[in-house]
């Protein structure tokens, strides 16, 4: 049985949806940030699959940039989590509702 690029795309779709479920249903802010990283990884897998199957390296340059943006996002996001934890002593998203009312 030959592994075509559809297999890689389907796997990427599954990983992306698991990330979406994590963002929607988890209560811990840190786990939500990890789910965002998982979604970025799924998209990276799609980009690399297309790039390699078409022999065009531009997609992998884009993956390189996505990784840099993910690193920046993780650093800033976790700094915000630390700042919120100092004030409210929780990382539960249902408790962090400063802007709600």
């Amino acid at each position: 049985m030959e592994i075509t690029i559809n297999w890689y795309l389907s796997l990427s779709a599954i990983l992306f949806v698991i990330g979406v479920l994590g963002v929607l249903f988890r209560r811990n802010v840190i786990v939500i940030l990890m789910s965002v990283e998982l979604m970025l990884n799924a998209v990276n897998l799609t980009l690399v699959t297309f790039s390699q199957s078409m022999g065009d390296a531009a997609g992998q340059i884009l993956v390189f940039f996505v990784m840099s943006v993910a690193a920046a996002e993780a650093a800033v996001g976790l700094a915000i989590v630390i700042a919120i934890f100092r004030n409210k002593l929780t990382v539960d998203v249902t408790q962090i509702n400063l802007f709600r009312y």
Binding site: S68, A71, V76, I80
Partner: peptide
């Protein structure tokens, strides 16, 4: 991207 990473580092330190 290098500038972005620098800004993110400074922002993270400031926020924390």
């Amino acid at each position: 991207i290098g500038i972005l990473l620098l800004v993110a580092t400074i922002g993270a330190v400031m926020l924390a």
